[in-house]
């Protein structure tokens, strides 16, 4: 089960009302490489992981991503909270406002709603960990673009924290990949679960 801690993981600060920046940052809430996708991806993949290190890492990183989702929501909420209708129109957020007022909803920067197709859960641990390493890199790139777009130094500070976390998660998933290679007992860099040189492709697992 999960419990809630009544605090943020990082003190997310916002200097002033800025719906234009909110429109970009919200992609890390409900976009393809955002924190909702990250947490759900890891938490749903953990059931079919064969080694204890992988089950633990997916549970813990998936949980940390939920905390990141809350940080991103806090940024967006505070960036638009005091915006006037004129501010919202100027920022091009009128479409969002028509559907959600100033409520938080899972969309990317262009307003496209979140879909489960953003994530994968393949049942092959090697495949899944590769997906996660790619996901961490995609999230890292997104934070870099958001940092370039940010004109609020306080928001940039929090984006930098989240950017760093993607790098740490990538590192941990890389270690899990190595542990999986050890577990399957193959000394090769590119390895597939059930791979048998006698039988290609590996149909009978």
């Amino acid at each position: 089960m999960w419990v809630y801690q009544k605090m943020l993981q990082y003190p997310a600060r916002v200097r002033s009302t800025n719906p234009r920046l909110a429109k970009a940052v919200i992609t890390q809430y409900g976009g393809p490489d955002g924190e909702l996708a990250a947490s759900l991806r890891y938490l749903t993949q953990r059931y079919t992981m064969p080694i204890p290190e992988a089950k633990a890492a997916l549970t813990d990183i998936g949980t940390e991503e939920l905390a990141h989702m809350e940080i991103v929501a806090t940024l967006v909420y505070n960036l638009i909270r005091d915006a006037s209708i004129a501010d919202i129109k100027r920022a091009g957020l009128d479409g969002y406002y028509a559907d959600h007022d100033k409520a938080l909803y899972f969309v990317n920067a262009e307003g496209v709603p979140w879909v489960a197709a953003y994530i994968q859960s393949k049942g092959d641990p090697i495949t899944d960990i590769h997906e996660n390493m790619a996901a961490e890199q995609k999230a890292r790139s997104t934070y870099e673009y958001l940092i370039q777009l940010s004109d609020d130094p306080d928001v940039t500070d929090t984006l930098r924290f989240l950017w760093q976390r993607e790098i740490v998660h990538f590192q941990r998933f890389g270690e899990i990949l190595n542990l999986l290679h050890d577990y399957y007992g193959r000394e090769r860099v590119f390895h597939m679960k059930g791979w048998d040189p006698e039988k290609m492709p590996p149909v009978d697992r």
Partner: peptide, 9 residues
């Protein structure tokens, strides 16, 4: 949290 993730691997 950071030490926890490190200890997982």
């Amino acid at each position: 949290t950071e030490l926890n993730l490190y200890l997982d691997t």
